[in-house]
Design a protein around this nucleic acid. Structure first.
Lengths: 209, 209, 209, 209
DNA sequence: TATGAATGAGGCTTCATTCAT
DNA sequence: GATGAATGAAGCCTCATTCAT
């Protein structure tokens, strides 16, 4: 009876799968993993609860898949090497902008990873949030190290500097999202970033009086 | 009616109450609010579940009480005014140290407040974590503003600077706690703080070329 | 989506639902709402407690559904208009018989509604027992009014007369059910009704000395 | 230390006991037996829960005591014999008024007895509500029987007549209390009673056309 | 694929009652 | 008399998951 419905059977299935992941991510991020029920997800996705188990092994599998698929395609600071040739100022500006873009685009997953970090601690080896964080700091650190070697900035622990800069931006973003919500005191992130870059650059530059 | 409170009976009761709060805070912080059951708390405290409801109205009340009693006696940056007379370097150092101490002492509650921020959103007026954050940043900002007026540092949005400095430290601390856990890559927070202060001071000082 | 409803699966479901309602009504009526536990109902229906929540939102929903579905299909005195043409004697007899039938058939629900009236007071607008009572009295009253206008009976407040007649029968029936239980002193309701009609007709007839 | 507090130790105790009974009756009547907790009663009476068990054996004992003490001092229709000499009209009027007074004064206990009748079924022999009802109807019936023997009214089953008259009034009163609450449609009970007496007297009188 | 009935375990909470103080 | 801490059982409900259809 159903005619011409299945232009591509796997197409519809794939769309369903993606939507389930999307809905799950949103709900997990908004309400927390434990406070989100399978029923919530199914209802929001317009699907029955049972069907969810055709696409995923269970609730935990949903979470794991979300983290894997959401983050792997575009790890933070992946294209950072290309900026070794830029002037310091512009390079740091790109790094900051890149990080901010990432935070904005992956707001939900970042919030989730922080709130529910403990849920990933089982696969201790492949705890993805941890890896992302460490790799990103290493890349950023490597970039700074080169500049130190070129004598452009002061000699300091480069990874600590990276954590300092990134942490500042991440904290600003998350506090704005998590704590302040939509408050009048909101400040545009770009405004903050500009100030941060300014201070950071002044702070690390070689400044022989 | 009776005012005496320290008889052996009410003393024990008070101790119980405190222990319940303490155990709850630890479990909430470790496993998350939703993932911690009343049974867990009662078991850990060596108490029947029912008794918990003699001391608290319910699970939510437990959380609310924790936040109120844990935080209110010592808001962050409360004694900050006293340092207006110190040299800039030492002042910032004190601020940083104070914040770090706070983070260390109230590690559990800070982690909880960030992870489960959504749980407090109901009492929109008295959302304590938000208030603490805002007040702290205002105090820190006010301190910086005075220094600007004295011409000791550059003119910039003082609250943004405060958020920048604090966010960096908080992010470092929480990431270490939440993401990295007890990893070999751990860096002593004091080390990080020293570096942060260094860069920050350089970054904001008035640097007449 | 699918409109067919009578497959063997959904058929069984519907039967289950009905049985749950039936069992609930019986237990609520026998033991009272508060004294009947969900477990009691589930056990009696041969079902797990959890399943009950697949069919109903909760205990209160069970009660609400019972009242709605039990009563709405056949409001008391609904077919009363058709008797305006009958001789007074037979008309009142039919009314009484109709009411008695109703009391017998819906014994459980009537007992429940009276015993647990307070449970319905929330939906103040649609408090069904109240509406049923009021509507029934209005219909009965309208019938009597016509007879007064035709000069067949004395002029009195028709609704009060209706309440007088009905209340007498209801009280008899419920007392027999509630207070006396299965006692030897039981009197057949039909016997009482005959006496009631007799006195009532004599009492309201126009009796020109 | 406590001076001159105990004018009569048992006086205070007795007052407490009475108040506990009074509060219990009110709450049981308003919310039902099962829905009223010991804590509710204690709180409302300004007493701790534990103390309640010095005065009563438990919740059930409270209920039993309420029924016994509330009703025994002034059973319905107790002074009815004195009216055998009155004219029929006035006699019935007194009976009705007496019943109505009783209903008004003991509103709470009557409502409770009807709602929670099942709670008394254990002492099957001394089920007080049942006894009261039966005794009252017997007395009323005896009164009517005498009038029949004197030829003042028609020959009918006197107890049935008593139940008819009383049931009507009781039903009116309880429906007004339970179902209608404080509604605009309320009718003064005295109004109803007058109508009831009128019809009843007409209905039972010997009326040879 | 897709449904939704069914389960069993566990979660939060209330309560009548006891008892040391 | 009086308190209120403590208990254990039970109550209502939610949930992740399975499975016949």
């Amino acid at each position: 009876m159903a005619i011409q419905r299945e232009t591509s059977r796997s197409g519809k299935a794939e769309r369903r799968r993606k939507e389930l992941l999307q809905v799950s991510l949103r709900l997990f991020s908004e309400n927390g993993y434990d406070a989100t029920s399978i029923r919530d997800i199914a209802r929001e996705a317009g699907v029955t609860e049972g069907l969810l188990y055709h696409y995923f092994k269970g609730k935990k599998d949903l979470l794991k898949t979300i983290v894997q698929e959401s983050v792997c395609d575009g790890v933070v600071f992946e294209q950072l090497d290309q900026i070794d040739l830029l002037p310091m100022e512009e390079a740091v500006c790109r790094i900051g902008t890149h990080l901010l873009e990432n935070l904005k685009n992956k707001k939900e997953i970042f919030k989730l990873m922080l709130s529910e970090a403990r849920l990933f601690e089982e696969d201790n080896d492949h705890f993805i949030p941890k890896l992302i964080y460490q790799n990103s700091m290493l890349r950023f650190g490597a970039f700074l190290k080169k500049r130190m070697e070129r004598g452009e900035i002061r000699e300091m622990d480069p990874v600590l500097l990276a954590r300092q800069f990134s942490g500042s931006l991440v904290a600003f973003f998350l506090f704005q999202e998590i704590l302040l919500g939509k408050t009048v005191t909101d400040v545009p992130a770009e405004h903050f970033l500009k100030c941060l870059i300014d201070v950071f650059l002044h702070g690390i530059r070689k400044c022989e009086q």
